[in-house]
Design a protein around this nucleic acid. Structure first.
Length: 430
RNA sequence: GGAGAGUUGGCUGAGUGGUCGAAAGCGCACCCCUGCUAAGGGUGUAAGCCUUUACGGGCUUCGAGGGUUCGAAUCCCUCACUCUCCGCCA
């Protein structure tokens, strides 16, 4: 949610934002009218309350009785106006950063840099699902019988490869020397405080998901009506509210977390898209970063997180490109969004493996997570969230880039020590 | 799932119908005293909204919501959460 005062003072910017982000139209005149009406009703209610309090002090029974009736009416009106006001407020998207390209959909995202050499194979590169089937490390058929479409069993060495990725990434995020190296490489002068590892809940109250501005579209979420709970689509969803209704001392920032959880996605509306293998699953594991920073640090914080993502890709030697997401393709809550897309030789395409969302104070305003400045002033904290490693897609990119002609897959050098081998091969039958 | 006890300011914790946004202590801030340190004394110290150039004033908030009452932290109802014991369980 934006600040109402900002909205009223910057109506053109807000109108443009709604249009550019393809948001649902919001009648700003109506919003302003509701805001003023709410203010007026509150003032009237305050006055009545004052009179009632006086009457109570004087033990004026008759007067008090009369005033109570009037107040009840007024509070009903106030609630109606308040509800409608908030309903409109939460529809208004975050204003994008000046460097965000204006565009209608993902075709207008802009590649800002590329890294790595695409591997040249002397054979036709296979897609990961074919490699996985051949090596008997991905089983989608049994998973379909047990759980349905878009579920898989990852088996044997592929499961080990995931554990290796986990260890590799955790070591980066918890090591300040590595983080310092990353900041320096990216030319950033940021505090390199390490990330705190978290294992968060994967179910949460729908109301809190709503405060995170992540409930909609609700069709994308798995909802448990009986318990009023929803499954997270990302660890961000329960990391973000970790400080809701709190005041954070300025000197405690930045606060950096990462969490390892499954992410649950219904993939409503994506029928027929990426049906092969593990590119688009109802459930996949992910290490997610979430940070809380001062407003003046939030842009460089996002650059830092992208720097971490790129460092991971470079260490894994997977060719990638960094893309800045245009207005029409970015999230409602985003101020600025970058994706990292890995080169997938089997598909001959770059595919998204990482994303990085800078929300500024948009989420914090509804979560009521504030910074207490040294001078006592309060303001919403700025929040950044970014993928450290999305296991499924990272496994795909490794399999496709490291494949051999015989269908085996080499293990990236940095992961070999965790896996205890340098190649994933089909077991030889004895 | 059963039985019971709780939820009050940054923290601990008192408060069972009015004079309570709330004692006391801790913490924090400023001042005084002390050569430094330690100890001591004084003053101040919740948030949100509205109003005011400012000083100030008003309203709301004692887990959340509803109710009783002229008046609710205090009484009643519903819900959430925490703790203890029992049961079950990884």
């Amino acid at each position: 949610m934006l600040d109402i005062k900002f909205i009223l003072e910057n109506r053109q910017i807000v109108e443009d934002t709604i249009k550019n982000k393809k948001g649902e139209p919001v009648d700003l005149d109506k919003l302003e009218a509701l805001y003023n009406e709410r203010k007026k009703l509150r003032q009237n209610a305050d006055e009545l309350n004052k009179k009632r309090n006086d009457a109570a002090l004087e033990r004026n029974v008759e007067e008090g009785k009369r005033l109570r009736m009037g107040l009840q009416e007024m509070e009903k009106d106030l609630e109606k106006v308040e509800t409608e006001f908030v309903r409109l407020m939460i529809k208004i998207p975050n204003v994008p950063s000046p460097d965000t390209p204006i565009g209608k959909d993902d075709s207008e995202n802009k590649v800002i840099r590329q890294w790595g050499e695409k591997p040249q194979f002397k054979f036709t590169a296979k897609e990961h699902d074919e490699l996985g089937k051949g090596l008997n490390i991905i089983d989608g058929e049994k998973a379909a019988e047990v759980s349905g479409a878009r579920f898989t069993y990852l088996k044997g060495d592929l499961a080990l490869l995931q554990f290796a990725l986990f260890n590799f990434v955790v070591e980066i995020l918890t090591n300040e020397d590595t983080l310092k190296e990353i900041a320096e490489e990216a030319g950033l002068n940021v505090n390199v405080k390490a990330f705190t590892p978290i294992i968060p809940p994967v179910m949460m109250k729908t109301a809190v998901m709503n405060r995170m501005a992540r409930l909609d579209p609700v069709d994308e979420r798995y909802v448990f009506d009986k318990d009023d709970l929803v499954l997270i689509g990302s660890a961000e969803h329960t990391l973000g509210p970790l400080h809701m209704d709190e005041k954070i001392d300025e000197k405690d920032l930045p606060i950096r977390y990462f969490a390892y959880t499954p992410a649950f996605r219904r993939e409503a509306g994506s029928y027929g898209k990426d049906t092969k293998g593990i590119i688009r699953q109802h459930q996949f594991d992910k290490i997610e970063m979430e940070t809380f920073v001062r407003p003046e640090d939030s842009l460089s914080e996002q650059d830092f997180m992208v720097g971490i993502q790129e460092y991971i890709m470079r260490k894994l030697k997977v060719p990638y490109q960094v893309v800045i997401i245009c207005t029409g393709d970015m999230g409602l809550a985003d101020y600025r969004q970058f994706d990292i897309e890995a080169w997938m030789p089997g598909q001959e395409k770059y595919r998204e493996t990482h994303t990085s969302d800078l929300m500024n104070g948009y989420q914090a305003r509804r979560l009521n997570t504030r910074i207490k400045r040294a001078d006592g002033k309060m303001e919403p904290v700025h929040m950044n969230d970014a993928t450290a490693v999305a296991m499924g897609r990272m496994l795909v990119s490794i399999m496709e880039n490291y494949q051999e002609e015989d269908g085996s897959v080499k293990v990236p050098e940095v992961l070999q020590k965790y896996l205890g081998k340098d190649k994933i091969e089909k077991p030889v039958k004895k």
